[in-house]
Design a protein around this nucleic acid. Structure first.
Lengths: 347, 347
DNA sequence: CCGGAAAGTTGAAACGATTCAACTGATCCC
DNA sequence: GGGATCAGTTGAATCGTTTCAACTTTCCGG
């Protein structure tokens, strides 16, 4: 009574295996009375199609994978949500692979996915220069880099958000609120995304003329690092201390917020904060956090769309690199209250 | 130049396909000089094993899936982290499937996983009575229910946390802090986990004699619902208003915290808060949140361990239903400050 | 240097679904 | 009635790997 195959169904229904297969894949081409017989047999025997066998013949599976560096970060799960919708509409299932910030895991997944002959791979790579990515593409598995602005030599599709613009938006906003000394919290050297945000902020202060940016380097982008950054900020003598901080992501900003208010400093009066990503918890903070919102779901949707296009064409697929625009969401953490504004001589 | 198969490798290396397969799966049984030849051929041709074909023969894949109701909830991703470790050690890869709280999606994934003949399925089901779960197990796919305390008729493995105990811990703590009117925020009717937490809290007040519980029903367990619950709480005349709220999860508690402080109410002086799950953002809130911590990673590890045990035995596998103990983490949101304690006549 | 055990290698037969050219009957029209 | 057409149906070949009984080679003690 091992497993029920198409053959058992055929026998039971008194037809050939070809007919069962047709009933399954091209129902229209089978006389309805026959189809009924087959369907009944399938139910009676509890038949479940063996996807491995189908794949073996088809050469491709119906799985789409999104390899993320950290499933714990709501930013990525939101992208996944967006991607899932489009994937499902195309008859593909999206599964998530969590590399947990480890290259080895990421490599392990890529290897597995290649062996599985998955339909396609979305990935926010720990290192976009990983040769496995190109190897995958060479073997005919469409790959799309997610949350990545194309670099010159890129030969893969990618979707990204204009982080320079995002950094600029945040800094311009803070300057408009009257801040002249602004801290940037993050690690521009570790991640290109962060480098861009930093650059955008620096550009804005250059143009604004009377702003300056202080870099508070923070290797990791998590809540704990935010708390530490707050300590360092408070260690600066008050005369020279920045009156605002722009954080490379919301986790950092939340950490700072906690440390600052925990020590009696009022946000935004003493120190204004702007985060990045606009995760759900940003709005839910005790002092709702201003943040640069990335169109996450759109990013996911777009990524799958590109991937399907790539998979669709035979060979000649032009790789694309769309870049979306971020948007500043202003909340209490950076809205200068009237009194403070007056003190700073703002309109 | 289509795809490179084991046959091409065999030809190139001047051996038979059987030998290539052996070199791949039982390297010890192949003379090392032969193995070297084979390996070289594989590299030269860029051979990648076709997992579908292997599966077809083996009857089972090396994929483990965890079907979650909501990847956006850090609680589940932490469980996944725990699970991943054990899975990897066993040579299996764990993928996440996000049902997004929709039954149809969940069903879709289960169907797919069955067709893929996955090695096993972990699931935190939207509805544990879903017949597909048992169907899966009947077809020989090990299934483990996660975050589920076994109900009498259960014929699947499960791992859970004692939510009655968790509810009790939270309520006892609040009572010890001098609170006599306590609100429970959540939807005991929709989810058994929440029902248990509620029951534990009610039990505690019964025994504590001078406590009482007010149920603030909230269908969903997200931040937005928490904000709404806060409104309803504040709508109660102050004389009769609870002085503490125990929320069915941290998202609710964070929502309440935001709404309360946003309207000038001081937590914990006026209203104390306790959440559930102890997600990372709980500690990072502006008023750090007390919460009942569930051993999430341990839950994940245990689930995979059970699953592997189930998969290992031939037929006679005793289903197990371990239940772990939660732990209360007290932070500022429910620590009665000295002055208030004095007013309430506490030691 | 022989016999036999051990080690290494071979190749054909699975695994289960899909495909497709060939076949079978109907149906229709002149 | 004969030929053409068409809708359904058939079953053998195929996908790429694993398995395993049979075979060959190597090794060793006597």
């Amino acid at each position: 009574m091992g497993t029920v195959g198409i053959k058992d169904v055929a026998e039971r229904a008194g037809v050939s295996v070809g007919t069962v297969s047709n009933a399954l894949n091209r129902p229209g081409s089978v006389r309805s009375s026959t189809r009924a017989k087959v369907e009944r047999a399938m139910v009676e025997l509890g038949f479940v199609r063996n996807e491995s066998a189908r794949q073996l013949r088809a050469g491709k599976s119906r799985l789409l994978a999104y390899v993320v560096p950290d499933v714990g970060n709501p930013f990525f799960t939101d992208i996944a949500r967006g991607a899932e919708g489009v994937a499902q509409a195309a008859g593909l299932a999206l599964v998530l692979c969590d590399a947990d910030s480890e290259r080895d895991r990421e490599d392990g997944f890529l290897e597995l996915l290649l062996e599985q002959r998955v339909h396609g791979v979305l990935i926010t790579p720990i290192d976009a220069a990983n040769p496995r990515l190109v190897a995958l593409a060479d073997r005919g598995v469409p790959v799309v880099l997610v949350d990545r602005v194309a670099a010159p030599g890129d030969i893969l599709c990618s979707v990204g958000v204009d982080d320079v613009e995002g950094g600029r938006l945040a800094a311009e906003h803070l300057i408009a609120q009257g801040h002249e000394r602004i801290a940037f919290v993050g690690s521009p050297n570790a991640m290109p995304q962060v480098a861009d945000r930093y650059r955008g902020a620096v550009d804005a202060t250059r143009e604004g003329a009377d702003g300056e940016i202080l870099l508070l380097d923070s290797q990791r982008l998590d809540v704990e690092s935010g708390r530490l950054a707050a300590q360092r900020l408070l260690g600066i003598p008050e005369r020279r201390r920045p009156t605002a901080a722009f954080c490379a992501n919301d986790l950092l900003a939340l950490g700072m917020l906690q440390a600052l208010t925990g020590q009696g400093h009022v946000v935004p009066d003493e120190i204004a904060l702007v985060g990045y990503d606009d995760i759900e918890f940003a709005a839910a903070a005790a002092v709702p956090l201003s943040s640069v919102r990335q169109p996450r779901r759109e990013l996911g949707r777009l990524a799958v769309t590109l991937l399907l296009d790539d998979a669709g064409r035979e060979g000649g697929h032009q790789h694309e690199h769309p870049v979306l625009r971020p948007e500043l969401v202003v909340r209490a953490s950076s809205s200068t209250p009237p009194l403070v504004a007056l003190r700073r001589g703002l309109p």
